[in-house]
Design a protein around this nucleic acid. Structure first.
Lengths: 337, 337
DNA sequence: ATACTATGCTTTACCGGTAAAGTCAAGGCA
DNA sequence: TGCCTTGACTTTACCGGTAAAGCATAGTAT
């Protein structure tokens, strides 16, 4: 019923448990003969080290916690896809948690990860969560932390892997300007720094061409498709009509397009659209979406590397890794592809 | 640097470690006064039980392993989204593994999960993996197993959560027949039972209307977009031309549509298409895809429940849960929506 | 011949919990 | 008064590993 242990191996061979342990850990003070006998027995019984006992003893679980706001958003899944291979080859497991966009659940998950003694945490925090304290507690306990796409909570001493959000806004807006659009509205995200930076990039790009956006060219909301839909409904009322929209992320851009189609407007002929994020299948949409993206895989990869390289090195100074964004031109922006 | 332990709590209060443990586990033989004092100290120090030590002692990790072939396929992510809430409320963590469609990696991941003493495993196996032996070893060790969408490996005694694949084939094909199509080709999947059952459903539905498909109406391949693309290129050579295609899954259907567009054919006017799976964004495609789907969330939810209800009950007989499929009519099948 | 050292193992203590069995004072009952 | 409970803990052993220290034996230096 239950698995083989070192005790059994040691017993059958008439050696001590420590000897078995040393063989498995490649200690030098074991004779070749003993090593061979142990290894043969391990093979014969299909023995595998009990990782739980090992973790307790080593005070190292070889496990990373991942906390994301939404499993269904391909964005986060791609980050995980970047983390997974790095962790896997180094023998690290991934403990996956979803906060379901709820700061309280996020807190509970972080607490759970603390109890499970994970060696590191990758956190794509739900905005507005007041979990600073929890994070500090984790950090104090020696858990390495990487925040993905979050540059708030400066008091939390942890690594960060970000994109250059102002550049995101500038790229998107400059592209629409290059495509001949002038009345470029912005569907802004929620009140977190990276949404604000995208907005700033939008303003800067417009300013660089001498355009000063009136107040009604911007509607701030959330990052969901429904937010984009509602925002666009309001933007459609603006006169003179805007001829382009830069949405703070792809779901919002898709929501905006839906609102336009309902209003019998054509994309990009009547209004051009650019999103942010380069979500999966964005190229298969009814009107393929122009977007500003960056490699989420790289983002995840860097996060995992920061954690794994930092573990066992105390006082690893917090690092910031910037992933540079790039424009992905498709049909929705009405520029030659 | 390192976390508070029961030892510290016990020391500060002048009680034994066991007393603290009993309070935390709600044992009856503790006075109200002591209970209160312990709880206060726990609160004061922000103490949380060390799950690793607990797991070792209880021989229960409160962890489920999840092994899927591909993180980027929304199909599997949706299943995880169904598992997560069930596991989370019961205090179970999810250890996520990707086999990257590689049976050898799958094996390695299963082995890792064995070492980590997970209480249960949800396996969406890469087809053709010869990991029967590994699974049996896990099962013998007392690990509960659920296979998702796999009805092969009958020798592995485990739960299964499946859809009714013959019904899938029948629904898709009957729908195309109802829409007036007669020459309905099939892009078959790889050599696994559920692909074969979808094919059987297709045959049955045709037979029920007196149609006997010639051999060149079926092309078997894989489940990838590229497989569908190649298969369709072959089907386009069939004369008289087919007027509909039932693809064994959505990515293959999308690949097929791409091949049609390249051949300057219109969907659904020239050829109607039905897929299987109801992948995310299927309704946002250039031609929204008619498909046969079923709730992946339910599938994940059932998987989690089978595992969690089965744990601690030895000799839990393997169960089969069937999730019934339903038709999702969109434009690609050329029927009134 | 004696002390010194390296080799190859074993003993012991510990990681942080849990369960079972043991202890001890206070109270009930004959 | 003596014995049996009962309540409220404590002691002990164990989960399955790991690291540090200990300990023979054989070989080498002096």
């Amino acid at each position: 019923m239950h698995a083989t242990t070192m005790k059994r191996i040691a017993g059958e061979l008439g050696v001590s448990i420590t000897t078995v342990s040393k063989v498995l850990n490649n200690h030098a003070d074991i004779s070749a003969a003993t090593r061979t006998r142990v290894l043969a027995k391990v093979e014969e019984l299909g023995y595998q080290r009990n990782a739980v006992a090992r973790s307790l003893s080593l005070r190292r679980t070889h496990t990373l916690g991942i906390v994301i706001p939404d499993l269904m958003h391909s964005f986060f899944v791609e980050i995980i896809a970047g983390i997974e291979p790095v962790a896997s080859v180094r023998g690290y497991g991934l403990l996956l948690c979803s906060s379901s966009e709820d700061p309280r659940k996020e807190r509970a998950e972080l607490e759970m990860l603390r109890g499970r003694q994970v060696d590191g945490v990758v956190l794509a925090s739900t905005h507005g969560s007041g979990n600073t304290e929890m994070l500090q507690q984790l950090a104090r306990q020696g858990t390495a932390i990487v925040m993905i796409d979050r540059d708030d909570y400066p008091s939390v001493k942890c690594h960060r892997v970000l994109t250059d959000d102002e550049q995101v806004g500038r790229l998107a807006t400059a592209h629409l300007l290059d495509a001949g659009r002038r009345a470029i509205a912005h569907i802004g995200g929620p009140a977190i720094v990276h949404a604000k930076r995208r907005e700033r990039g939008w303003r800067e790009a417009l300013k660089a061409r001498g355009i000063k956006p009136p107040d009604d060219w911007i509607v701030r909301g959330g990052f969901m498709e429904s937010d984009g839909y509602r925002a666009m409904q309001r933007l459609l009322a603006v006169r003179p009509r805007v001829d382009a929209v830069f949405a703070a992320n792809d779901p919002a851009a898709i929501g905006a397009m839906k609102a336009m189609w309902e209003a019998k407007l054509r994309v990009p002929d009547d209004i051009a659209v650019v999103g942010v994020g380069d979500i999966a299948l964005g190229d298969l949409l009814r009107v393929p979406l122009t977007t500003v993206g960056w490699s989420r895989r790289d983002q995840g990869r860097h996060a995992a590397e920061l954690l794994l390289n930092g573990i066992d090195r105390d006082e690893d100074p917090p690092q910031r890794v910037i992933i540079s964004p790039r424009l992905i031109v498709r049909e929705s922006s009405g520029a030659p592809v």
